[in-house]
Write a protein that binds this DNA or RNA. Structure first.
Length: 109
DNA sequence: CCCCTGACGACGC
DNA sequence: AGCGTCGCCAGGG
């Protein structure tokens, strides 16, 4: 059985729309502990085998694909994002702000 | 039970 | 401006 934070992170990630991305920090903040961004990354790492979770839509606050090496194929993250219309150059999302989806704004607590 | 690790981020120096 | 440190939460040894 997983703890609440773990489950909550997964829930929020599932809600990220196609073509949008969010950050570890935003998710942590949405869950009420803004300083737990690190744990968000940790959760996704544990879920890397669960392909039903769009973990490729979560990047760090600079729009960098810091987690790409944890996928089976390091290029998976970028190719998925580009399929959805998100351009990636040098492991960084181009025009990050226009693709940024903030659960704190988009979701009602 | 204590210590370490980690896809982060804010702050201090 | 860049680097070091610390906080946070869970899990593993």
């Amino acid at each position: 059985m997983q703890s609440n934070f773990f489950v909550d992170v997964v829930d929020v990630v599932r809600l990220i729309p196609r073509g949008k991305v969010t950050t570890y920090g935003s998710i942590a903040k949405y869950l009420g502990s803004s300083r737990s961004s690190r744990t968000v990354g940790w959760v996704l790492n544990k879920q890397v085998l669960d392909t039903t979770i769009p973990a490729h839509r979560v990047v760090n606050r600079q729009g960098i694909l810091t987690g790409k090496n944890y996928f089976k194929d390091p290029l998976f993250m970028q190719s998925e994002l580009e399929k959805e219309g998100v351009k990636v150059v040098n492991d960084q999302i181009v025009d990050f702000n226009t693709h940024f989806w903030d659960p704190n704004k988009e979701l009602t607590i």
